[in-house]
Simulated assay, not measured.
Amino acid sequence: MNGEELRRRYATKERDFSAVNLRGVNISGSEPMEDIFIDIDLSGINFSGANLTNAILAGANLTDANLSNANLTGADLGQCKLIRANFSGANLTKACLDAVKFRDTNMSGANLRSASITQTQLGNTNMSGAKYVSNIDWTGTRVKGLVLKDGTAIDSDGDW
């Protein structure tokens, strides 16, 4: 499916895209809020600037996805694969990022206010300039090469 087809289906009020192949689709700046993208391959998708408020992306493969400056307020990203994903400047307020696999992910400047990030794996994740990092419950999170707001890199062999 391409971006035009997705927009057409969205205009007809379709909201459950869990069985659709959206790999590499460009829907930057669109407003697919409250949509359902469960357990699908969204690798390479361009959601930059999109309004994904309350979207359900649980279990999705977001490898190489661009979610820069996207509004993910209240979104469920639990159990997602976020490898080389770009969340720079994204609003992740109250987002669920539990049991997520972050690797080489850019979260610089992201707003993480009241986000849930437990039981995750953070490998080479850039959180420089991210907001509200100190208020997150990191229970069960394993860390390697996490770069914080002040540029500090953290490695932890066990839970952080």
Rank of each mutant, 00 (worst) to 15 (best):
M1Y: 08
L6G: 01
R7W: 04
R8K: 15
R8Q: 15
Y10I: 12
D16Q: 03
F17S: 05
V20M: 14
R23A: 13
G24S: 12
I27C: 12
S28I: 02
E34C: 09
D35A: 14
F37S: 07
I40P: 00
L42C: 13
S43K: 09
F47R: 11
S48I: 07
A50K: 03
A55D: 01
I56H: 02
I56Y: 02
T63R: 10
T63E: 11
T63I: 02
D64P: 00
T73A: 13
G78N: 12
Q79H: 11
K81R: 14
T93G: 01
K94E: 12
A95L: 04
L97S: 04
A99E: 12
R103Q: 08
D104E: 08
T105C: 15
N106Y: 05
L112P: 03
I117T: 06
T118K: 15
Q119R: 13
Q119M: 12
L122T: 02
G123Y: 11
G123N: 13
N124T: 01
T125K: 00
M127P: 01
S128Q: 14
S128I: 06
G129Q: 06
A130N: 03
K131T: 08
T139R: 14
L148R: 14
K149Y: 12
G151D: 09
T152M: 06
I154Q: 04
